[in-house]
């Protein structure tokens, strides 16, 4: 848990080495996942494999259960007491839905990026340091190092380095969203869960986030929900189309969008964007 600075740098290096030999073994596997809220069957028997270091785009009409699926993956469904979740989600051979592992440790394996940025009510610096401190790191130098590194990773460092101890409220929405990404990366997740991360942003900020994702996929697996088909084409290695709580079709964006099999996807492509 407690890494020294040298070890952290070494850790970063190993990730860099891994860039070259991208393997496609799956990091996350969902089996027979069902979610109910009372009588409402929100997710119906979901089965899905998520390969490593790829961008997987979840697509589907509003209310089809994309957000719920993401929340299952880091057990945020726990805080909604009316949701009943059953099935299996394996991350690194650990079934996170039926495990003795502490839930906070599971959640640290996933970075969550929401539809709107939700900066925590503390300074910019503390926002990024929050997750690092929760991991038990106390060494000031190491926290400083991490904060700087991850703010640089999202290209925010130069913009905020003189204002680290200000409230995030002074940043633009696009900058806040990058801050949220940075603080998520600071806990060293394996997977990034992004729920329409650009839907509240202007085109330029969206572009910045998109480009970040393209770089991040070298080190992380990204599961991205989006309503923008063009964004899906630009970013996705794999597209999963959902409707009404079910997975209808999946495949590479070229295949899926050129030759949609189901009527639902055809309809979504016409009306969806």
């Amino acid at each position: 848990m407690y890494l020294l600075k040298e070890e952290m740098i070494a850790h970063d290096k190993t990730i860099n080495i891994m860039k070259t030999d991208i393997d496609t073994e799956s990091v996350l596997q969902i089996k027979n996942l069902n979610v109910h809220a009372g009588d409402h069957h929100i997710l119906k028997n979901i089965n899905l494999r998520i390969p490593k270091n790829k961008v997987i785009v979840l697509l589907g009409p509003s209310g089809c259960g994309k957000t719920t699926l993401l929340k299952c993956m880091n057990r945020l469904t726990d805080i909604n007491k009316e949701l009943e979740v059953s099935g299996h989600i394996y991350i690194e051979n650990d079934d996170i839905l039926n495990t003795s592992t502490n839930v906070p440790l599971i959640r640290q394996k996933m970075g969550l990026l929401g539809q709107r940025p939700y900066p925590l009510p503390m300074s910019i610096y503390k926002n990024v340091a929050y997750g690092i401190r929760l991991k038990g790191v106390r060494d000031k130098k190491m926290i400083n190092y991490s904060v700087e590194k991850h703010l640089k990773e999202v290209g925010l460092w130069d913009e905020v380095k003189d204002r680290l101890h200000h409230s995030p409220g002074i940043l633009s929405i696009g900058q806040q969203q990058r801050l949220c990404l940075a603080r998520g990366l600071a806990v060293k997740p394996r997977i990034i869960l992004a729920d329409e991360p650009t839907s509240a942003l202007d085109p330029i900020s969206s572009k910045i986030i998109e480009n970040l994702f393209r770089d991040l996929k070298l080190n992380y697996t990204i599961i991205l929900v989006t309503h923008v088909l063009r964004q899906a084409v630009r970013l996705a290695d794999n597209v999963v189309f959902m409707s009404n709580g079910e997975i209808i079709e999946q495949g590479s964006p070229q295949k899926l969008f050129k030759h949609p099999k189901s009527a639902k996807l055809k309809e979504y492509m016409v009306n969806g964007n």
């Binding site: 929340k71 880091n74 945020l76 805080i79 906070p104 440790l105 959640r107 640290q108 996933m110 970075g111 969550l112 929401g114 539809q115 709107r116 939700y118 925590l120 009510p121 929050y130 997750g131 929760l134 991991k135 949220c180 603080r183 998520g184 806990v187 869960l193």
Partner: peptide
């Protein structure tokens, strides 16, 4: 207090009480 804020904190590995 927006739910998204709590979710953000939880997903960074905080316990509910934290």
């Amino acid at each position: 207090v927006p739910a998204g804020l709590k979710e953000a904190s939880l997903s960074l590995g905080a316990t509910f009480w934290e």
